[in-house]
Every structure is written in structure tokens, then in C-alpha cells.
Amino acid sequence: MNIWDIVLLQPMINILIALSHFLFNNLGIAIVLLTLIIRFILLPLTLKQLRSTKQMQDLQPKIAELQKKYAKDKQMLAQEQMKLMKESGVSAAGCAVPMLIQFPIWIALYQGIILALGAHPESLLNLSKYIYNWALPLAILPLNDAFLGLRLAAPNAIMAVLVGISMFAQQKMVTNTEGQDPRAAQQSQLMLWMMPIMFTFFSLSFPSGLSLYWLISNIFSVAAQYFVTGWGGLSLNKLFSGSKQPVKKG
């Protein structure tokens, strides 16, 4: 085992299996609980990232003005943008760094769920390597993958749709095209649809245990986003006014 396995993956798998063991041998509940635990532990970082993103979005109208003003002088534009961000206390790193810190933990959780499912012979054999012998009886493996009528080791279309909807909701809350120039606004709209479609697509092919993780994670993100920005693009007013945001003519 390498350092990644020892520091992140092995503890993740053992916690997941221990939770499953003590939660009525139910891997589904264990996935939900572990996802929530990790998301709560990472909440300060998540909130920092969301606040930085919101600050960045709030600056968009001013940045658009600068872009218009210095359309022919890229160097000046960059300088003015830096100055504006510095004055407003916003840093691009504030958005990216918290996300980068969270990323390895998400990947380890993802790998842990895949391995814990022990769905095929190689993964079950692999899984047994990661178990702390002193902590858990090996006889509890492979884990029971039945959860609310799902087989967590197999793809499920309903879960895929739920993942897509929850991701759309999250993206919709984040997406704010007000004040953006038309091209940026269109790109935001593209992302709004692209991510949910892709994750729905992937959920159709992956074990639904992973879809469950994505779904819970998305719901948590929606709640965190609400805490920072309110409903954003998901508010009834904006939903019923359609996606036609007031866009400044370029």
C-alpha cells in the first residue's frame, strides 16, 4: 500500500465498513452518514469557498465595466482587475484552495465506496487488504448492498435522475448571469445544463452506491449554498421569470 492508501483510503474504508456493521449491516445508511460526516467536517472550507465565489460574482458587473473600458488594453485591464479584487478583499485562490483541499477527500470517499461494495472478485480481494484485522471481523464482508429497494452495486435509473435533478438545483443556485457579458452568461448557462446531464449519464453506468453519495453530497451542497446566498437562481421569482436574465448589450 502507498501513502495515499494508508493515510486516506484505508481509514475511509474501515470507517465505512464499521458504520455499515453497526448500522444494521446497511451499507446505504453508512454511505449517507459518512458522506454527511465528511461534508460537515469540511463545511468551514466549503463555506469559505462559497463566500469567495459569491464575492467574485458580486464583482462581475464591475469587471464587465472594466472589460468594456479597457477592451483594447489587455495589460491595463489585468492591472485594474487585480486592483479591484484587492480593494474588495476577493482572491481567486479563495475559491480554488478550499476546493483543492477537499478534492483528495472526495476522491478517497469515492474510492472507498467502490471498494467497499466488493462487487466483483478483484474488488472483494482488494477490499480485504484494506481491513484493519484488529477492528472488524472479516466475516462481515462482502457487505449487504441492498438499500431501499436498490442494489447499491448496480446502476439505477431513478438514482441517476435524482443525481441529475439535485445537481441542476445546485448549479441553478450558483449560476448568476446578472451583469455578465453575453458570452460569459451563455457559458454559465451551458455549465448549468452540462454538469447535471453528464452526472446523470455517468450515474447510469456506475454502481448506485456512488449515485447515493453524489445525491447526498448535492443535497448538502444545496443546503450550504442556501445558507450563504439564499435560493439564488432557484428562487421562485427567478424560476418563473425564465432564464432570460437582463444582459447588457456588448
Binding site: 476522491i107 469515492y110 474510492q111 466483483h120 472478485p121 478483484e122 474488488s123 482488494n126 455517468f202
Partner: peptide, 11 residues
């Protein structure tokens, strides 16, 4: 993300 990190976990 989904492929490489699950390397060695496929049948």
C-alpha cells in the same frame, strides 16, 4: 476522476 482513481477496481 472516475476512471483513473478506480484503476485496479475493475473486473
Amino acid at each position: 476522476l472516475t476512471g483513473c482513481v478506480s484503476k485496479g477496481m475493475s473486473p
